[in-house]
């Protein structure tokens, strides 16, 4: 059987909120090292990759590898019934067709069990090679969210450029143009307010703002976001999940016609 008890249940709620509108159905791959998920959106333009390591759980047991086929909208409905401070336990039998979510209130005076039907999903996995990206930028996640939202009101696509000076976001549309530059900034008091640029070669790529906007639903998971770019490769937008792993989004760039 599989069982995982997560003291900070709100993490799982936040993960679902971040991905449920991008991906409909996906397998949660459970193994003794944790829970992993990889899924593309229906147009195969964006991909979600989640890792929740066993060590981040208060209790974790997985007797044999399981692929739990889950409709994310339905799981989101179930998790919305958990309080933000609740402890969440996931349970599934090896041969079962359901998953159980148990919610415990912080002082243990309310215990709820929600049982959700699983589904069979033939998932296509993409092999994502380890890449030395040409540019890696880490910046405040709220700042990234703000920029992407602001630019979305002006254009449909953004050119993201990285030089050793910083990272720039540009767009244009019927009403005009916009260009935002965030400079490397390591002299701020709080580490989470820093913007750091690690660069081997300047890079500039164009992406659909609609998807970038969708990724920023993960902002609540981490104060910082890391953007990894290389010429002619999908961008990686990564939110680290403290002590547990990460939620990564990959987005294919616009290509020359």
């Amino acid at each position: 059987m599989f069982e995982g008890r997560l003291l900070q249940g709100s993490l799982l709620k936040k993960v679902l909120e971040a991905i449920k509108d991008l991906v409909t159905d996906t397998n949660f791959d459970c193994s003794e090292t944790g829970i992993a998920l990889q899924a593309m959106d229906s147009s195969h333009v964006a991909l979600v990759s989640l890792l929740l390591k066993d060590t981040g759980f208060d209790h974790f047991r997985c007797d044999r590898n399981l692929a739990l086929g889950i409709n994310l909208q339905n799981m989101s409905k179930m998790l919305k019934c958990a309080g933000n401070d609740d402890i969440i336990t996931l349970k599934a039998e090896d041969e079962g067709d359901t998953i159980t979510f148990m919610f415990e209130s912080p002082n243990q005076d309310k215990i709820s069990d929600f049982e959700m039907k699983l589904m069979d999903i033939d998932s296509e996995h993409l092999g994502i090679p380890d890449t030395d990206y040409q540019a890696i930028v880490t910046m405040p996640s709220a700042e990234f969210q703000r920029i992407v939202r602001d630019l979305s009101s002006i254009g449909d696509t953004a050119v993201i450029g990285v030089t050793k000076e910083g990272i720039s976001f540009s767009t244009g549309g019927d009403i005009g143009k916009a260009n935002i530059v965030c400079r490397q900034n390591t002299n701020v008091d709080k580490e989470e307010d820093q913007t750091t640029v690690e660069i081997h070669e300047p890079v500039s790529l164009t992406f659909a703002l609609r998807y970038l906007n969708s990724f920023t639903k993960a902002t609540a998971l981490s104060p910082q976001v890391t953007l990894s770019l290389s010429k002619e490769l999908p961008i990686v937008v990564e939110y680290k999940i403290e002590k547990m792993g990460f939620l990564r989004f990959y987005l294919a760039p616009k290509i020359e016609e």
């Binding site: 195969h44 333009v45 993409l126 092999g127 994502i128 294919a252 616009k254």
Partner: peptide, 14 residues
């Protein structure tokens, strides 16, 4: 602006 790329042109399906 260019056409929207697809992930399966960059990564192989396994």
């Amino acid at each position: 602006k260019g056409a929207q790329g697809r992930l399966d042109t960059f990564f192989k399906i396994t």
